[in-house]
Design a protein around this nucleic acid. Structure first.
Lengths: 181, 181, 181, 181
DNA sequence: TCCTAACCGAGACGGTACGTCTTGTCTTGTT
DNA sequence: AACAAGACAAGACGTACCGTCTCGGTTAGGA
């Protein structure tokens, strides 16, 4: 068991801040949410937030990673559809697309956010598909962008995502992955 | 010919401001671009900008509408693919998706932007498709979201859009419009 | 009459901000007074304060200069004592020494404040004495420091300055200026 | 010899912290010096500093008391001038007036600092003069303020104190103590 | 040898001020 | 009226500092 010197960080702060971030960004949008608001909602000082995350973008990205969770490990009998459908389902969670829309906007003109988005969100999904079904990475990237982009845009313009839309988008993405099928 | 009293508006201001908006937002992103910067780049006072547009969001939206242009009127021999492909081609213009990404982010938690985006961008496209091919409005909405959302997300994460991606996304959207085909 | 372009500055702001500064610094000390407090007390935005003064130190210095006023022009029959006594009287004003104490503390390790204090407070006084009575500049500097320093320190430690102290200090300073007398 | 239970305090810490305080405050001023800086310069944890002194003001005051030292006991043949001159000499030490200027500024709006300054700096000096020459306490207070205040102010504005100034100020203070002389 | 009590280093934490920035409004004189 | 110029209100940003706290680990005397 390793111990770093100094007072240990409060264990419950990360979760509280992330939860406040998710709630407030969903309600007010990325730009409309203040770090003071987040800190106040999490019952924490603003300095504490800045000690753990370098910027608002990092915090929101981190909250998003946690909200999405990890793509499930494929088990016997699983098909490609299960993993793609899992992604579509996660994005249709208001918590997820509420955070993601703001980050995508921030990615323009902020290369570090762009890189982080690619590495921490898209990459794990791609890795799983490539490992399990030997899928073409380029096709997977495009499928990811279709699933996430379509649903994000749909949510932003229409206000929500219904199951039928999730299915339709999932089908469209699957066709891109198995053109012969 | 109607004349309102007082000094007439300068005819070249609108174009100059829109051009400055397009350039700066593409380079720096929506949030990273200041109205002072835009006014300075257009060699115009900030008051002049606010006299013509109510807010930054309105200005950017207006610039976007001009950059996109109108969907072409279908002529003899045209197929559905021509119109959907036109949309994909327009979105792949960096000027277009640069502006749009920021606006979509702004639409969350800003209902008026959401409404404007729906009415001034998506609606004209839908009207044309419904008029010419009697398409199902709901399917058209989804196809629009797939085309625009996928390409937007792809541009934001990958930094650009190549023709192959445009084609693949166009195909995917067309399948949603003609499920039987 | 000269007119600069743009909206003219509100004429009453300078006085209101200076008045708020004088009052708050006297009550709470230099370090204990916030620029937000000053702005709020003057019913003005903080940006407006920073547009007119570069820093808290500049603002307080400016308020001090106004509180002190100009040394009187010597008239027929005036003696050295009138001018030195005027200085002592001005410093004994709580508004004056309240501001000055903080500035002197700031002058250590802030050369620009030190220079400003010398040029805007001590210099005018010295100039007057040298012009009217051909006094020795070095002696005047010392006399100034005795009057101001003694009263400042007395006020800081004892909480106020009574007329007898003012007289005693004035006498002491005069002896430094007329050693033969 | 008394022993309190528990680990005894390190014997060298007080001196190291005071030395660091003197050096840093002289160089950067009172407000410009951080307790973290002091702790780092003394190679000590901030907690250790706060265990021994209640606040920054207390620490600086304590360092000042040590720097000044005790007024000398009057011996046979000593005159008033020796004691007053001793005070002037001590204040002209840059270490002394560097600390004192900041404390005097802090004393405004911080009554406990004011009281401490009076009791720990001025009082011992006054006691000595009253005991040895039966001086008038009020006159001694004023003489103290003249010596300390004048030299402090002179150092703050002129950057240093030369021996001639020390003499002149000492003379001025002595005249206040022996009006008949 | 264990126990107790206080010390120390390291650093997290709450609270608050700083000076800067941006949005959208307002107020001048000029065209 | 429109326009240029710029002041203004409101409020968020990210940094810095003070004084407190909470750990693990240390160092003495006493049981």
């Amino acid at each position: 068991m390793e111990h770093r010197p100094g007072r240990p960080r409060r264990a419950d702060v990360d979760a509280a801040v992330r939860a406040a971030t998710v709630r407030l960004v969903r309600e007010q949008g990325y730009a409309g949410t203040t770090l003071d608001q987040i800190a106040r909602a999490a019952a924490v000082a603003k300095t504490t937030v800045y000690r753990r995350w370098d910027s608002k973008a990092e915090l929101v990205l981190d909250a998003l990673v946690e909200v999405l969770g990890e793509p499930p490990l494929p088990t016997h009998g699983d098909e490609l559809r299960d993993t793609v459908g899992w992604l579509a389902g996660r994005i249709s969670d208001p918590a997820a697309h509420g955070l993601l829309v703001g980050l995508v906007g921030e990615a323009v003109g902020n290369p570090s956010v762009r890189t982080a988005l690619r590495h921490r969100i898209r990459q794990p999904f791609e890795d799983r598909l490539v490992a399990a079904w030997d899928a073409d990475p380029t096709a997977v990237d495009l499928a990811f962008d279709v699933v996430v982009g379509s649903l994000l845009h749909h949510a932003a313009l229409s206000g929500g995502i219904d199951p039928a839309t999730v299915d339709a988008v999932t089908d469209a993405a699957l066709r891109l992955l198995a053109p012969a099928g």
